[in-house]
Nucleic acid binder design. Sequence first.
DNA 1: GGATTCTCCTAACCATGTTAGGAACTCCTA
DNA 2: TAGGAGTTCCTAACATGGTTAGGAGAATCC
Lengths: 197, 197
Amino acid sequence: MLGTPTRDRVAERREATRREILDAAWEVAREKGIAALTLKDVADRVGMRPPSLYSHFASKNAIYDAMFGQAWQGCLDALQASVADGLPEEPRAALLAMGRAYFEYAVADQARNQLMNARISADFQPSPDAYAPSLAVWELGRTHFARLGLTAEADLDLYSAVVGGLVDAQLANDPGGDRYARQLDRALGMLADHFGF
Amino acid sequence: MLGTPTRDRVAERREATRREILDAAWEVAREKGIAALTLKDVADRVGMRPPSLYSHFASKNAIYDAMFGQAWQGCLDALQASVADGLPEEPRAALLAMGRAYFEYAVADQARNQLMNARISADFQPSPDAYAPSLAVWELGRTHFARLGLTAEADLDLYSAVVGGLVDAQLANDPGGDRYARQLDRALGMLADHFGF
DNA sequence: GGATTCTCCTAACCATGTTAGGAACTCCTA
DNA sequence: TAGGAGTTCCTAACATGGTTAGGAGAATCC
């Protein structure tokens, strides 16, 4: 009558612990910088000893990997939300909206952006799984560009490099400020002009 | 009759050894990445044991610091050379020349660029001495912009962020290739248009 | 020639990522 | 409900890498 249980308690607990570890890792990363993240700090925060983390992640890089995936998934979600919100019909406004959405997400969390875009350590390479949402973000950009009539890869390359440059400059030279954020609309307008919008 | 010696052999030897260590450090950095640089690798290359390096540098970060200074000094030299070469009278050409000179220098050596622009490790902060040539590069840019009639800080901010963005994109996504280098002239032209040249 | 300084060495320490092996707990099943 | 399998945590230990302590030998100077 009762049949097989519908819940897998072990898997649920395992998943919850994984999430707890990742949350702790994000906290540490935000406090001390992504590169200064240490297994001891993470373990302390979840009430474990460092080796115990290995029951849940194969290595420190596996933690980075999961964080990398979360970061880009969050970016994808943010961009899709801003698109769903109501993407402007006008090409120029659409270009501005896309750029602003990415910039805001990227600038909101320095540790996250470093993980997403900088090479944290020589030996960390994101896995295909973790890399997938990053590719999806690129695809989203490509799709939107195509909708604006921009089909050359070069156009998206230029656009992404400009926006990325402003993000990096903002985080590196004026974290928490708006020195480069103030140039964002100008840069996007410049690009829109250049694309003929 | 002979008077005091005109050479300080100790200082000369010391200086030569310092240079030897830095050269070795650059080799290692280029081979394994700046972040993977290890005192053992450097020591091996100069025929020493790691602790002996401490007779010449106060710490690993002091080595990074000296390298940081060299990298920016080299950049300053490269830019000044390209200026001395013959800076175009025409504003548009001048803007292009500056951007190209910086881009070329930055893209030529990934390890060097990471050291110059990325935060290598949480605890490394360049000393004022090592930072000086970096400021000088910025000053050079400011001077040239002023000569073109661009006196607002915002203009240089925008320009540097765009060029820096292309450098980072090139090194991160297509090292050794020219995918983003191909967008450089376009970006610079766009900026020139925007500035009204 | 002897005192001083410089340059390198070995030994050791500490932090951090990681592995080995085992104890305790959870959960399933006979 | 007792046993057994799997899970999750622990302690101990190891390797690597930056760093410090202390000393030996060579270079230099008086």
